[in-house]
């Protein structure tokens, strides 16, 4: 699970299996509870306590599993420490972006010749987005519209998303939060971010599929 596509792919499979399992359980229960054959069974309290223990274990282990398997969770927790590290080069790794009047304003001095934010593979990158008026969202999307990552952009707060790109690709920036009908579907910067220098390509993020 090295990127969001892998995580979402796994989630799709696991959750679908779960839904079918619950559906089967309820169909079995409905059939059994209305079946005149067989006697009602008394459930022991011990069964109940084991079940509660199982629920607690599942609830906790979901978070432990994702903490260990989803790479950006740890990054998120440590982002301020990483940023303070001497190896963190703000001139290359920090991008200050502004949102105002339902528009993204990219730092002009940081754009390449194609008007894109160019990102070096494997480096921790911080998108520091400041809202001058409303609450917005900041999302990175692949060429096939699938989501890479997102955060909320709240006025008066620091909105800093740290991300590590390990595959080459070209990404769109799009608001993931509603900011009125003027924002609606208009807050999108196509091909605004490009990642270079990796060994692997993000096949879903290559322009024209290449």
């Amino acid at each position: 699970m090295e990127d969001s596509a892998g995580v979402l792919g796994l989630l799709k499979i696991v959750y679908t299996i779960y839904v079918f399992a619950v559906m089967s359980l309820m169909l079995w229960f409905a059939k059994g509870v209305s079946n005149p054959k067989g006697k009602p069974r008394i459930v022991k309290p011990a069964t109940f306590y084991m079940y509660v223990g199982l629920l607690i274990s599942i609830g906790v282990s979901i978070h432990i599993f994702t903490f260990n398997k989803i790479p950006w969770v740890e990054t998120d927790f440590k982002r301020h420490t990483i940023e303070k590290d001497p190896s963190f080069d703000k001139s290359k790794q920090l991008f200050n972006i502004v949102t105002q009047n339902q528009k993204f304003i990219l730092p002009v001095d940081r754009l390449n010749r194609d008007g894109q934010l160019e990102i070096e593979c494997g480096k921790y990158i911080v998108f520091d987005v400041e809202s001058k008026d409303l609450t917005y969202g900041f999302g990175l999307f692949r060429q096939d519209n699938s989501m890479v990552s997102q955060m909320q952009v709240v006025p008066g707060s620091r909105n800093d998303l740290m991300w590590q790109f390990n595959k080459n690709g070209t990404y769109h920036i799009q608001s993931t939060e509603y900011s009125g009908p003027k924002g609606g579907r208009h807050m999108k910067l196509t091909n605004a971010v490009v990642v270079k220098g990796c060994d692997k390509d993000d096949t879903r993020s290559m322009i024209g599929g290449k």
């Binding site: 969001s4 989630l11 979901i62 978070h63 994702t66 950006w72 990552s149 997102q150």
Partner: peptide, 16 residues
């Protein structure tokens, strides 16, 4: 489904 989205890792790609 709610517990899954109330996870810091998954919420990053499920929110909104």
């Amino acid at each position: 489904a709610a517990i899954l989205q109330a996870d810091m890792g998954l919420n990053r790609i499920l929110h909104n």
